[in-house]
Amino acid sequence: MTRLFAKLRRTALMMVGMPDYDGYVGHMQAHHPGAPVMTRTQFFRERQEARYGGKKGGKCC
């Protein structure tokens, strides 16, 4: 049940282009140990800017 809820939550967040923060931290620890890791807030702002401020249209008609 908790797993289903977690998946729904990730789906909802991904619908607005927000990937999983824990996944990002996991990736940084596994592949770039020692490199600076963004905080949750920095990560949120960075992703928001990447989705809406960039060159992608992102949306359909």
Binding site: T11, M14, M15, V16, P19, G23, V25, A50
Partner: peptide, 19 residues
Amino acid sequence: GLDYVATDRVVLFGHHFAA
């Protein structure tokens, strides 16, 4: 971990459909 993230296919289906 940002732009390139291996995503669960159901989650990705939601992302793509919403777009």
